[in-house]
Amino acid sequence: MAIDGMNHFTVLTSDLEKSKAFYIGVLGLTEGYRPPFAFPGAWLYSGDQAILHIIAGKPLPVEAQGVIDHMAFTASNLQVVVDTLNQHGIPFKLHRLVGEHTWQLFCHDPDGAKVELDFAASEPEPRAINTQLGS
């Protein structure tokens, strides 16, 4: 058996519309085909790949389950993303990866899932960073 790549992540949500607004309106994914499951949700795409599945109507766990810490996406247009997060009042933390100089931006979705966005080292340092997560 060999792994050929990552298929998708699945997150639970307490509010499907809020989650879609974040992942579509803020992060730029698009909603696409989803099989007719018996429970509400959405499949969000990057290009033609459904990379994020959202499940609604299922209670969120009281305590975190498993050991997954965060989901990471390759991204572009750092300044546009920073401006969009600031416009929506979404706190974030931004730094350069030691040695690689890749930009790493961390924020949380409406239900608290940690999201990492990785930008090329060649992207210029953004201006007007107004909201930041604590350490």
Rank of each mutant, 00 (worst) to 15 (best):
Y23E: 02
L27Y: 01
Q49Y: 05
Y23P: 03
I55P: 03
Q79P: 00
Q49D: 11
V67R: 12
F73T: 01
L44E: 00
R34W: 12
I55S: 14
I68G: 09
P59M: 00
I68T: 14
R34A: 09
A42M: 04
A75Q: 02
A64M: 12
G57W: 09
A72K: 13
S46N: 02
Q79G: 10
A38I: 07
H70R: 02
V80Q: 13
E17F: 15
E17T: 15
Y45W: 00
A50L: 09
G28Q: 04
D69A: 06
I68V: 15
T30Y: 08
A72I: 13
P36I: 01
P61A: 06
T30M: 06
V67N: 14
G57I: 04
Y45V: 04
E63D: 14
P40I: 01
F22M: 03
R34Q: 01
D48H: 05
A75I: 02
I55Q: 14
V82R: 11
F22P: 00
E31P: 11
L60G: 09
V62F: 06
P36E: 05
A38M: 00
G57S: 11
V82I: 15
A50V: 06
G25P: 08
G25F: 14
I24V: 15
L60V: 09
E63G: 09
V81R: 03
